[in-house]
């Protein structure tokens, strides 16, 4: 299976692991990630205002690129996923917005919102299947107590994202279980880590992140996985005493492709 892949700015820089292990794991699972040519940064956050058009064009170019190849668009960074999915939703539901966008897009041809957007996790669940992953595990993670951290961007707004139950999600827990480890369920896994506020008010972000880590630890977590570089940064910055890793790294480890990427 071939899919279009939008890595995003951070994955080519500070979050190289997230990207590298995504590639390696996909390969084992029989999925080829075809990186979009000349992709541009999604902007990091979706601007909800109706009259914001220019800030969303980079997402639309990516969507159109995948659409032209008749491939689903896969993202792995939570932020990119949120921005691209919300933009796509706006294209599908807000005709006034779509009109404006297509005037900008005149040179590239019009786009109506036909591309399907999958987060890497959704790709694992819906296109690959957790049972398939389970069969391909070579290093079982049995006995590890792992807490999934979703943050806000993967799940909300639920009307658009439609990934899982926004208040009691299970997609990452199901992944953890399919890798042989124990999933730690804790209520704060969908609370915001503080996001970009850590630039201006690091203490505010710290307060949120500490509460999240505390909640995970009280419930027995030995490790936290996440899909978002900013979440990872905030959770680590607050002084976490348990490791915070990307979910793709965990996946690669279980699939036995972690060592050779390090080599």
């Amino acid at each position: 299976m071939k899919v279009s892949y939008f890595p995003g700015c951070t994955l080519k820089n500070k979050a190289k692991d997230l990207d590298m292990y995504a590639y390696k794991s996909a390969e084992v699972l029989g999925v080829t990630l075809e990186e979009i040519e000349n992709w541009q940064c999604c902007g990091g956050v979706f601007t909800t205002a109706n009259d914001e058009v220019a800030t969303k064009l980079s997402s639309i170019r990516a969507l159109k690129y995948a659409g032209d190849k008749e491939q689903p668009l896969v993202t792995v960074c939570s932020a990119c996923h949120n921005v691209i999915k919300q933009t796509n939703h706006a294209m599908q539901t807000n005709s006034a917005f779509a009109d404006k966008v297509n005037r900008y897009m005149a040179a590239d041809g019009s786009y109506k919102g036909e591309t399907e957007v999958y987060h890497y996790l959704e790709m694992l669940r819906d296109l690959v299947g957790f049972d398939v992953i389970k069969e391909k595990v070579v290093n079982t993670l049995k006995g590890k107590k792992i807490a999934a951290y979703y943050g806000c961007l993967l799940l909300r707004p639920n009307k658009v994202m439609r990934m899982d139950d926004p208040e009691n999600p299970t997609i990452m827990e199901d992944l953890i279980k399919s890798l042989g480890a124990d999933a730690v369920v804790y209520a704060k896994r969908n609370e915001c880590c503080g996001g970009y506020i850590s630039l201006e008010s690091p203490d505010a972000a710290k307060k949120n992140s500490i509460a999240i880590i505390e909640n995970a630890k009280v419930n027995g977590a030995q490790m936290i996985i996440t899909a978002c570089p900013l979440c990872k940064y905030n959770l680590e910055k607050c002084g976490a005493d348990i490791p915070v890793v990307y979910f793709t790294e965990l996946l690669a480890e279980a699939l036995g492709v972690k060592e050779d990427t390090n080599a």
Binding site: K14, L199, E200, P229
Partner: peptide, 18 residues
């Protein structure tokens, strides 16, 4: 003044957009 070695690009991009 506010970045450190680990600051992800995503943080700066998001903050600027906001």
């Amino acid at each position: 003044a506010v970045v450190d070695a680990d600051t992800p690009q995503q943080l700066l991009v998001s903050a600027f957009r906001k």
